[in-house]
Amino acid sequence: MSEYRLVQHRGNWSLAYDEEERGRVRVALGTPDRGLAEARARDLWKARTAPVSDKVKDLWTSYIADREAMGVTVDAAGSTWKALETTFGHKLGRAVNREDCREHYERRKREKRSDSTIRTELEYLRACLRLKYGKESPVLWMPPPSAPRDRYLTKTELKKLLSHVETPHVRLFIELAIATGARMSAILELTWEYVDLERGTVNLNPSGRHVTNKRRTIVPVRDRALAALVEAKKGALTDNVIEYDGGDVKSIRKAIRSAAIRAKVPCSPHVFRHTAGVWMAEADVPMQKISQFLAHSTTAVTERHYARYSPSFMVDAAKALNW
């Protein structure tokens, strides 16, 4: 069942969605008032997407429908569920325990998956169970968080990488990824409506977007990145800033990987975000500003990842211990 939407029919609002077997389904909400229709639609959708049982496989279906209704895309390819299904699909949600999580961990390690990948899978499972059970959700075991990433690009490496990029949309993505420190999804979802070329700002958190733990913010762009945006706007064919062949771009990982291989510069989309943080820290930008720029939840997160790159961080503390 797809994400629902509101449509007008004979003067009133209706809830509409698509089913694989029935095609388009429309349910009258009995009101011309948009606000009341939205409230009724939420309640109706919640009832229609409620899990048919307490088995994790049914809870997962309900969880995905809920996230999509909130405008959040969760694992559209289903790879996370494919990983979780073997261990948890047949279990009752309340019965999931720490030993099940460790069993999943051992199996995925035998399949050569990293700790960070496995932790992400279990975090999705935890969110799924919390949606159903709230505070009564079972406590899950998690592998420890991965150490902060160390791979970042020097300016020489970035120039070399760009020299091996063959398409304009990939070059523009890299320019924006470095200039904004944003995640791949934020840049690929960016539309021209939220780019202010006169003020030189990019709004990565447009109105109506459901706020997740992957926070976004409004950032200034200057010089090189701003010039790249001005040039791209002249030839824009769609509303999306990053476009290819008249359409939007869902993922750019393959293109980045190919350019990285040609340039012999190991790189992935997230490396650009980490590079932005490192460059700001190396320039002695205060941790609070880096935190706001990268939309971290707390300054402590920023310090854990980037303080070691700052020339002056804790220097005054070290001086205090001199005798």
Rank of each mutant, 00 (worst) to 15 (best):
S114F: 02
E193V: 15
G89A: 14
L84Q: 05
I118R: 13
V27G: 04
L226V: 05
D196P: 09
A179E: 12
L129N: 03
D33S: 09
W45P: 11
S62A: 09
H104S: 03
G30Q: 00
G93F: 15
L197V: 12
K289T: 03
G277R: 04
S185K: 13
L294A: 10
L44M: 11
N240A: 03
L84T: 04
K46A: 07
L140Q: 00
Q288A: 04
I256L: 05
H270V: 08
S291W: 02
P138M: 01
V25K: 01
A28F: 00
A186H: 03
K135V: 15
R22N: 05
Q8N: 12
K160Q: 14
T154N: 05
D284V: 10
R222V: 15
Y4F: 12
T212H: 05
Y306Q: 03
A69I: 06
T117S: 12
V221L: 12
G181Y: 00
G247Q: 14
K319R: 11
W13L: 03
S185M: 15
G89Q: 01
A232R: 15
D239C: 01
V230N: 14
S310R: 13
K254A: 14
A228L: 07
P138N: 02
A147V: 14
P143A: 02
T298S: 11
T201E: 02
L188M: 04
N12V: 04
T180C: 11
V230A: 12
D248P: 13
W81K: 04
T49M: 00
G30V: 04
R107A: 07
D66T: 11
R42Q: 11
N203S: 13
K91E: 14
L162Q: 11
S114C: 01
R216V: 03
Y63G: 08
T49S: 10
V74H: 14
K289R: 03
S146Y: 06
T87D: 14
E3H: 06
T212V: 09
S116E: 06
E103C: 13
F88D: 15
L122N: 09
P311C: 03
E123G: 08
R94S: 10
N240G: 09
T180N: 06
E303R: 10
A276G: 08
A69S: 08
L161N: 14
A95M: 14
R113H: 02
W13P: 01
S116T: 10
A300F: 07
D115F: 00
L158K: 05
M287L: 00
L59G: 02
L59F: 06
N12H: 07
P269C: 15
A225D: 04
K132F: 05
D223K: 13
R308M: 05
A177R: 09
T201L: 08
D33Q: 12
W13T: 02
S137Q: 03
S14Q: 02
